[in-house]
Amino acid sequence: MRLEPRENVTLLIKAMVPISAGIISLLCCSALIIWAGASPLEACVLLIKGSLGSRFAISETLTRTIPLIFCGLAAAVAFRAKLWNIGAEGQLYAGACIATWLGTGMIDLPPWLMIPFLFAAGALAGGLLLLGPTILKTKFALDEVVTTLLLNFIVLLFVNWLVFGPWKDPMAMGWPQAAPVIDSATLGHILAKTRLHWGLAIAIIATFGVWFLMRFTTWGYEIRAVGHSQKASHFAGIPINRVIIRTALISGGLAGFAGVSELCGLKGYLTLDLSPGFGYSGIVVAMLASLHPLGVLLSSLFIAILSIGADSMSRSLNISNYIADVATAVSLLAVLLSMMLTKYTIRWR
């Protein structure tokens, strides 16, 4: 068996990437469901019902897409410049920490000022957190995959210390959580009696913003050029390090948005389960979207359906809800594999 480069890649082949990835991950999960002693068809029906079957289910799914969109955009922007930011999880918590610090009574502004202010602060925190590894990368060629990944654990342990220590809310009956954000810092709900909040609108605006940035501006052009070829970009006079640092600030900022929106829209207070790994899922979202900002909308919806649906399905069928994580992971592997297969064709001999 060997790989041969494809001579021309049609749009159809490219479109097959996410579709085949979805199918492969569903097939793999079916096998696991059969192994767990349930019917995959029934599981599939329950999964769809659980994620899209009612007003409440839909609202839950959409609520889940919000952090996925932000983190997916964060990964998509960074990966375009070949800046491998694996630290969105940490940047998300950095954003949430700053918003907690500022939003639990330190400052009180009218909501129309308070919300943008917190988002800006959160973005700054996320961006600055990624700045360190990025400078180490540009100055000393230190691998940012390692540094950003390890920074996640440092940030998480720091949050751990905060919610068990100085920020622990005395009113929370001993639970390790910080004080809730004040009313003016809370994002309103879009639908009554659901948890769906206005963070969705911000996420969609951010998506189009990133799309516009990448498509129509010199910054986006520079990011793409540097990502495709540092050598040619350097030769052409593009300031590579400046572009990479700028990209880091944008990417970290988007991940910081995720933290603020989860805090102010959904949870209301800082805990250690603010994010069940949205930063990592964002990588899958971005890869499924082939790093296209608008594609991030669709792929985060897909991942949200998968995880919300699997949650409810696993409860009804009494199988582990880790099935959603398996499905997400398999879909990432399938994407990577099928991306390779769009560039190469396998010849058996």
């Binding site: 010199t218 052009y221 793409r224 050029a225 495709h228 070829s229 050598k231 040619a232 970009s233 030769f235 052409a236 006079g237 593009i238």
Partner: peptide, 20 residues
Amino acid sequence: ATGVIGDMTVLENIALEKYW
């Protein structure tokens, strides 16, 4: 490797040294 970026379009390659 240095003169053009293969993954970018003809237009984007023309723009490379003058987009600013």
